[in-house]
Amino acid sequence: MSVIEVKNVTKIYGKTVALHDVSLTFKENCIYGLLGRNGAGKSTMLNIISGRAFADSGEVLIDGVSAKGNDSALGKVHMMGEQLLYNPALKVKEMFKTASWFYPDFDMDYALNLCDEYKLEPKKKLAKLSTGYRTIAKAVNALACGAPIVFFDEPVLGLDANHRDMFYKQLIKRYNERPATYVISTHLIEEAAGLIERAVVIKEGQLLLDKEADEVRSMGYSVSGKAEDVDSFAKDKELMGEDVLGGLKTAYIKGSLEAAELPEGLSAEPMNLQNIFIHLTNS
């Protein structure tokens, strides 16, 4: 069992409240999407859980044990952060070797196979890699570490479309082979949407939503058509937002659509995760 409980965590940087009284639970063996706009507090939360930063108040429990300064709890978590914490003078293979000393389930063969797939040279120093390849090295390290909880903070930063696709496929494959709790914090929501089982949305340091991804998708729908028809249809409904283009309008409406209620001339579509996220965090 590897469950993370975040309890009433608050973190303030100077005059900025990065997290305000956030409480949530990450259950075991599930892929989470941690979503939020820039500066919402996603990285701060992951940093606090993984012991890289400290909360001003509140606590983080991993399997019921406080994670603060506790190696046995922190050892269950691996975080692939945006920044490189390993010594840049290390070679890629040395980074894997180092991780294997801390994570007994580290799979070196798997890591080296992934290096082959990504054409990442294990003998190259981390400092000599391009930003994209450094991201790949960190991602491979995270996928191979064997920790029951793995955080991916912007895991595809600087990767081209092919490498991003490879990463998502690898992540799903690895998850199927060795289930673990993966928390993916990314701005490329649509790309990662297919992976996410549960979505956690943070807005301005506060928890806005924590729901199964399917449940989030069914939170709303979009209706498009002539502006006056859309307005008339949407007037008694709860609007999440709207886009206007010339005489055409798209309204994003909360709730589910009954097939019978849609008037002629209007078309309806289920909202995708990204649209819902945009309208939730814009409002």
Binding site: D71, H78, L85
Partner: peptide, 17 residues
């Protein structure tokens, strides 16, 4: 300066450790 706390933090070890 280069390897004190960061490598430990990257691998789930505390500052005291």
């Amino acid at each position: 300066m280069t390897d004190y706390l960061n490598t430990a933090a990257a691998n789930g070890a505390s500052r005291t450790t």
